[in-house]
Design a protein around this nucleic acid. Structure first.
Lengths: 343, 343
DNA sequence: AATATTTGTGCAATCGATTGTACATAATTT
DNA sequence: AAATTATGTACAATCGATTGCACAAATATT
């Protein structure tokens, strides 16, 4: 099976109209120096001939691809799917395309993804870091080439790269305070690698809330794992062994909180009477689990939109000075039955 | 802020080594006619100088981008996130990149997405159709250019395009039969637009199962909506008004089934005693809702992998004859408490 | 009417990698 | 030793769009 018809180029159009390719090129991109008559004619013929601009040639000449790279730890999470949906919408409206890859939580794959993005000559890079990423040397080639790099969610400190995240510290502080106000005195905190700022900050918010309410911090109540469903089950067993038994749990994500809740329920623990629960993210399942889970609404879609807008802004005003300011999105606590012990 | 350092090209390497750019090019791609010594040297210098191949130039010359386009109705669903994760893994392992966009369930946006993919000169297109897509004229330019188009999940009949989907008819037949075996006699079916083959087939499987078990089909028991959570709530109210009251529900997705279940539970219906439930997809929330939802395991990740592999195969053996065979993935019924009335 | 400005178009170089062809030199075969 | 083949490299055209510059024609200004 051999290739279809030959692709139409601006030269074909130029030949047909007995004008130069330069004029065709200018006409197609609405250059002011081309007469309206010529423009109309060119566009008409281009359509008739089924012309499609060759982006390779254009990109080569213009040294820009109109493609934005995205690297995330995992594509299959609710939060990330929302982020991507938001990103895609905004980028698409601005005629940018999105090329995506996942690091699968390893720095090694993140590095190879970054290299692929570089070879693909993305105009900008959006990235949420893998669990074990300890440095961002692999992003230096972008920074060196003045390709904007924007961090979101799992961010990294760098004076040239804006960061977008929510105030994890504050959200964790609020939710812990809420649990305390519901009468909890021994609150377990389930979290993940403290290498990632977002988890470290949630942890810090948790600690500060305890401190501000005169509750002694107890390191034995802190469980560090990968926040998976399996980890939630394991956490539940660990909690059951604690003595005296905790009366509240604040998990750094909903997923882990939910499987933990289910395991505890099976073991006869009454929720929230025996133990109040709070999660983080507002996954769809938070309103399915019984009792419905108190959590922090982490707006993925909005974060995607904001990240894309910031990226577009950087690209359009490429030469302007862009302070690498960080954007902190508002998040809100959503109180549901899992934490309500007082009415 | 002006651009960083100049990009290194093969000419720079050639100059430094006093050899021709042609040799550099061949050395970098391990051409057999270049001596091992030269290859080593070129690679060494290329690394030292920080050379990155310019994909625009390469693509322009080779007329291929190594980019696969993906168009889906919505990015933010569990199923789709899984599909994308699977796709990305396989494509990435084969040095292909993935560019994605969402039609937001409208044919209009699907058309504009397709055009963008064409301009971006994707090497292949993977697509799951929007709700209201009635024809695929917008994909003809790909077919005409011999760019492989592969449908998955929401497929379309076309003699040049392979389709990947599960046997929806069979799965629906099985699950309906299961409900019947659990003693259900009046089974509601909640489904979506019959324009989409997958829903039409699930409907057909449902009907056939009734017929084979001598249960009279009753059109009043069929609810057609968009399968959203809101639609699930509305369906619940509709079901409550039915008389005599149905004793089973088969929803064409889990999402809708779950919100319907929750609404019915609030209204005092006992599940599964009063009404047995079955869904479709095996969303994570299916094991969170109480009672856990009987459903069909629709393996998104696997579907993504299979679709990607098929695409790679088409691209690598570009000139061979490819029968546009369809791939039907195995799906399995997962029986949980929501449908178990007999032990 | 002469000069200055605007408008419209074409020429030709450029972006960087690839590849068919040519041509040496080296290694083998007769 | 002559003829043949294999090996290694270079030349130059090509992919298609873009754009600085030149220049003619049309219009406006003095």
């Amino acid at each position: 099976m051999t290739g279809g018809e030959k692709e139409i180029t601006i030269y074909d159009i130029a030949n047909k109209l007995n004008i130069s390719a330069a004029t065709v090129s200018r006409a197609l991109k609405d250059h002011p120096r081309v007469s309206k008559k010529t423009k109309k004619l060119v566009i008409k013929i281009a359509n008739e001939m089924g012309y499609r601009s060759n982006s390779f040639a254009s990109n080569l000449r213009k040294k820009s691809s109109h493609i934005i790279g995205l690297i995330v730890p995992r594509l299959n999470s609710n939060f990330m799917a929302d982020v991507i949906a938001g990103l895609e919408k905004v980028l698409n409206n601005n005629n940018y395309n999105l090329i995506i890859s996942q690091s699968l939580e390893t720095m090694q794959k993140e590095i190879s993804n970054a290299n692929a993005m570089l070879v693909n000559r993305v105009d900008g890079l959006l990235i949420s870091l893998a669990y074990d990423t300890t440095n961002i040397d692999h992003l230096e080639p972008f920074i060196k080439r003045n390709i904007p790099v924007i961090f979101f969610d799992r961010v990294f400190e760098h004076d040239r790269c804006p960061q977008i995240y929510i105030d994890n510290y504050k959200a964790a502080y609020e939710i812990t305070t809420h649990l305390i106000k519901q009468g909890c005195k021994r609150i377990v905190h389930i979290t993940a690698s403290q290498l990632r700022k977002i988890y470290a900050e949630r942890y810090a918010g948790y600690k500060k809330a305890l401190e501000d309410h005169n509750i002694q911090f107890d390191a034995d109540l802190v469980i560090i794992n990968d926040l998976s469903s399996e980890a939630g089950i394991a956490s539940a067993h660990q909690i059951l062994k604690m003595s005296p038994r905790p009366d509240g749990v604040f998990s750094a994500n909903d997923n882990c909180a939910i499987s933990c809740m289910q395991t505890l329920k099976k073991e006869g623990i009454k929720l929230p009477a025996d133990m109040a629960f709070a999660g983080f993210n507002n996954d769809p399942a938070a309103i399915v689990v019984e009792p419905n889970l108190t959590t922090v609404n982490y707006k993925g879609y909005e974060m995607g939109e904001v990240a894309a807008k910031l990226m577009i802004d950087h690209l359009i005003n490429k030469d302007e000075f862009h302070p690498a300011h960080s954007l902190i999105l508002r998040s809100e606590m959503i109180v549901r039955e899992s934490s309500l012990r007082k009415v």
